[in-house]
Structure formats: structure tokens, C-alpha cells
């Protein structure tokens, strides 16, 4: 049932697509670095979970989807929002709690939504977005619209009971959903080997007859290839699919994580050897698909987007005090 994916090195893409991947991953990286910096300056409060290191996962998978497909994720969500085409200004302004944010400053880092981009959050409770995403897929099947849903969650959520309740119903009802387990090796500070009896998380659907595959989450093309297989399975009406992305986060679980559970050497080694952005950059240059100048141009563009978002996130006002009591209920017609 569950299989490892074929050799990802075979996967190719056009120069334009590779440059787009480079740009999308770099935008997430630079955005997150800036968010970390602004957190340190006290401009972002509360919890802030950065996606640095995991960029290839969402960028590769989103490339296999259509614009109409739905996405739902956890609280480590900034990268997913940018990859869904949400505006960096609105995301950053939500992080600073300003009225220009996607939730008008009321949701914060973990709670943003964009129905126009088919992005259903941003969920702060570990595991909750598994059933919620399954519900979006249920609706897609009910509405017979041909759309699927991708529910991203981590290796920590993979041990939540509600995930298996969702797996069962998704398989029973053949719902169009891809569960992407972003295995970044640590559920907060507990490694997969210390938390999981079965550490091959792509096999977690075996009991329900859900096929699963594992792919290199540090390689955007490997993710694209694995996602294309998953999408083909789901679009054929065969029901859910599990995709385990082997990835790594460079930063702590959240900004307040002292990261005593892993060594500095481990982080720097992975960063040096497996970084998804460096990996793609080297490939673009080696295959002469882009020159240094072209990549610098992308760097400049990305930097401009992040700078603009940062300025907007500081100039956008805080919500008016009258907003305290709005958006609790919709007036019934």
C-alpha cells in the first residue's frame, strides 16, 4: 500500500517553472526572516511559528494543484498563505495586529483565511485541521465541483486521534483530499522517534486502505512529482492520499523555543547540505537556466515585496476600538 516515491532526480521542469519555484521559496524565506526580526523588535506578539527550511514542501505541492483546489493548514502557516497567492502585505499586517491584516488584526499569526484563494486557515489546535480539511473535501464532493483539498499538518498532529477519525471517514466516503504530513522531525521539542511507534508516517493510512508515499521535502521537484501522483489518485475519484514530506525547520518551534532538544551542529549540517533554496539555485546555475544576474534580480524583487509588506504592517493602523464587538455573529437575515 504505502510506497516510497521513485527517484526524484528524474523530475524535470521548465526553466520558467524552476525560476518561479526559486522565487516562491525565496519569498517565504525572506518573509519569515523579516517576521523573526520584527518579533524580536516587539512588533509581532504572541506565538510566531516560522517555516524556514520547509519552503520546498508547500511550493512543490501547490504547483501540482489548480487555483480552485482548497488548502488548509496549521499554525505554521505563513508559507502556505504566500504559496496560495495571498498578499504579503496582508499577511505581515496580520502578524503585527493591524487593520490591514487578512483578519483585520483579530486573528494573528495562526488565524488567517482567504476564501477567494481557497485558503481555509490557519488553525491553532494541533490536529483540528485534519477533520476540517476533510470537511472541505466532503463539501467539494457534495457540490460535485471536481476540486480537492490539501490538508497540511505536522508529525506531531499525526499522532492526534482526530486525524484517524478523519482518515476513516475520508476513506469510507472516498473524499477528494490529500493529507500532507510535513515531517520536520520534531513535534515542538519531541523527536519523531520519541513520540511515534510507527515513524514511517506515510504508512499511517494503511489501516484504512489509504495509499501513502514519502518524498524529500527539501527538494521542490521531488515534492512536485510526489504531489502530481497524489493529485492524479484523488482526481480519479479514488479517495484520500497521504504524502509524507521529509523536511526540517531551521528555527525553533516558535520564537520562544530555546531548541535544547537538538544540536547546533545538526541544524547547520542540514542547512549546509540540504537547503532547498541553495539546492535549486545551484541547479539553475549548473544547468545554465539562469545566471547570477537573473537570480539577483529575483532577490531584489523579493526583497522589495518584503520591504513593502514590512512598511505596510507598521503603517497600517491598529483596529478601531469599535472592532472589539464586530464579527462575533452575522446578523441573521
Amino acid at each position: 500500500m504505502a510506497t516510497k516515491s521513485a527517484d526524484p532526480k528524474k523530475k524535470t521542469a521548465s526553466a520558467d517553472q524552476l525560476l518561479q519555484f526559486y522565487r516562491d521559496m525565496l519569498l517565504i524565506r525572506r518573509f519569515e526572516e523579516k517576521a523573526g526580526q520584527m518579533y524580536g523588535m516587539g512588533l509581532i506578539g504572541g506565538f510566531c511559528h516560522l517555516y524556514i527550511g520547509q519552503e520546498a514542501v508547500v511550493v512543490g505541492i501547490q504547483a501540482a494543484l489548480s487555483d480552485k483546489d482548497a488548502v488548509i493548514t496549521t499554525y505554521r502557516d505563513h508559507g502556505h498563505m504566500l504559496a496560495c497567492g495571498m498578499d504579503a502585505k496582508g499577511v505581515m499586517a496580520e502578524l503585527t495586529g493591524r487593520v490591514g491584516g487578512y483578519s483585520r488584526g483579530k486573528g494573528g499569526s495562526m488565524h488567517m483565511f482567504a476564501r477567494e484563494k481557497n485558503f481555509y486557515g490557519g488553525h491553532g489546535i494541533v490536529g483540528a485541521n485534519g477533520p476540517l480539511g476533510t470537511g472541505v473535501a466532503f463539501a467539494n464532493k457534495y457540490l460535485e465541483n471536481g476540486e480537492l483539498c490539501v490538508a497540511y499538518f505536522g508529525d506531531g498532529a499525526a499522532n492526534q486521534g482526530q486525524i484517524y477519525e478523519a482518515f476513516n471517514m475520508a476513506a469510507l466516503w472516498k473524499l477528494p483530499i490529500i493529507y500532507v504530513i510535513e515531517n520536520n522531525q520534531y513535534a515542538m521539542g519531541t523527536s519523531v522517534t520519541r513520540s511515534s511507534a510507527q515513524t514511517k508516517l506515510y504508512k499511517r493510512g494503511d489501516a484504512f486502505g489509504i495509499p501513502g508515499a514519502q518524498a524529500d521535502g527539501m527538494d521542490v521537484l521531488a515534492m512536485l512529482e510526489a504531489a502530481e501522483k497524489a493529485v492524479a489518485h484523488v482526481r480519479a475519484g479514488k479517495g484520500p492520499y497521504i504524502l509524507e514530506a521529509m523536511t526540517y525547520r531551521y528555527r525553533g518551534h516558535s520564537m520562544s523555543d530555546p531548541a535544547k532538544y537538538r544540536s547546533r551542529d545538526e541544524v547547520s549540517r542540514i542547512r549546509k547540505e540540504r537547503d532547498p533554496i541553495d539546492h535549486l539555485r545551484d541547479r539553475l546555475l549548473a544547468d545554465k537556466l539562469a545566471d547570477e544576474e537573473k537570480l539577483k534580480e529575483i532577490d531584489r524583487d523579493v526583497k522589495a515585496i518584503v520591504t513593502e509588506a514590512t512598511e505596510f504592517a507598521q503603517s497600517s493602523p491598529e483596529p478601531d476600538p469599535s472592532e472589539l464587538y464586530t464579527d462575533i455573529l452575522i446578523d441573521a437575515a
Binding site: Y120, A128, P131, L132, A137, N140, L143, G161, Q162, M169
Partner: peptide, 21 residues
């Protein structure tokens, strides 16, 4: 008819409501 999984099917129903059902 759902299986006896209140946590799961309540979440699925909420997700379906997000999507407009």
C-alpha cells in the same frame, strides 16, 4: 450515517460549513 466518532465528524461538518454547505 457516521461512525461513532464525534470529534471527527463534528470537525468534518464544520469544514463543510467553511466551504459553504
Amino acid at each position: 450515517d457516521t461512525p461513532i466518532t464525534e470529534h471527527g465528524f463534528a470537525g468534518i461538518a464544520v469544514g463543510a460549513a467553511y466551504r459553504g454547505l
